[in-house]
Amino acid sequence: MKPPKERGKPIVPPCQVIRIRFSPDGKELAAACVDGVVRRWSVPDAKPLTELKGHDGWVTTLSYSPNGDLLSADSWGKLVRWSNEKVRWSIAAHDGWLRAVAIAKDRIATCGRDGYVREWTADGKKLHEAQFGVDLYSLVYSPDGVLIVGDLFGQIRVLDSHLKMLRKLEQKEFHLLDRIQDVGGVRCLAFSPDGKTIYAAGCQPKTGGFVQAFPLLVALDFATGKTLWSWKGANDNEGIVHDLRVFADGRLAAVTSGQPGQGKFLLFEPPTATPAFVSTKMPNCHSVDIHPDGKQIATSATNANSSGNGRVKGKAGEYPENSSPIQYWDIE
C-alpha cells in the first residue's frame, strides 16, 4: 500500500466533532458536533452545507442510509432521520446517551447507556427491544443482517432477529475495574466485507481517571469467536481506538486518541496485524471515514494544545474552545 497523502488544508468546524461520515453518493461529509449540530460540507470542495439542528447535548453518532437519508443521534437519546435536509422523523429512542446506530436493509438498530438495544423500522417504529443491563457502546449488522453489540465490559453479544442473545464473545482485555471506575469498552465494531471476521476495537486500559490505555484492535472469527489476530499500541499513553472503518477490499482504517495530545491514523491490511501505515501528525483523532470511491479518507482530530490545567487563554485573551480539524487524504 502506498501511504495516503494529505489533501489541502483541513476543514475547521467551530467546535469538537465526535463522528464524521461520507454520504453514499460521496458528495457530502457530515460531522456530529458537541454543540448539538450536524455540520456538512460538499466533497471535494469543502463548501459548508445547511447545518442540521434540533439535537440536544452532543450529536454522538451518524449513519447514512443507502438512499442518502442521514440518521443522527444524540446524548439525550434522540434519533432523527433527515431527508433532503428536513426532519423525516424524530423519536426519543433511548433514555440518555445514544451511543451507536446501525442500518440494515429494512431496519435500524440503536444502543445506549440505558442498556437497551432497539430495532426500528425505516419509518421509526419500534420493532424489538432488549435490555442487557450494561452500558452498550457499539453495534453493527453483518452483511447478512446479524446484529452484534459491544459493551463496557468487553462482551460482544450476537443477537437473533428478535434481539435475543444467541451467544457471547468475551473479550475481557477491553475492560478494567480501576478502583471504582469501569474503564474501556468495545468502542467500535465492524465486519469484514465477507462477514466472516468481526473487528472489535477500543483499548486495553491500564488505569482509570487519566485513562492510561493501549489502543487495541482484535480480529475474531465470527463462526467460532476465536481470535485471528490483534494489534495493541506500544505504549499506555496511546489511548483508545475511537473509530474503525472497513474498505470494500477488506483493508481497515482506524484512529486513536491518547494522553496528552497523542493521536494516530492507522491503516491495516488484514490479516497482517502490523499497521501498513501510521500517521502521528494529528493530535487526538476521534473519527475516520472512507469515501465510497475508496480513494479518499477523512479524519477528524483535535487542535494542538487542547489540554491544560487552570485558565488557559486564547490568542485574544479569551477562554478558548477546542475544535476538530477534518483532514482529507488521498489513497491508492
Partner: peptide
C-alpha cells in the same frame, strides 16, 4: 475545566 480537551477529558 469547562473546556473539553482532545482526549475528551
Amino acid at each position: 475545566t469547562p473546556r473539553i480537551n482532545g482526549h475528551l477529558g
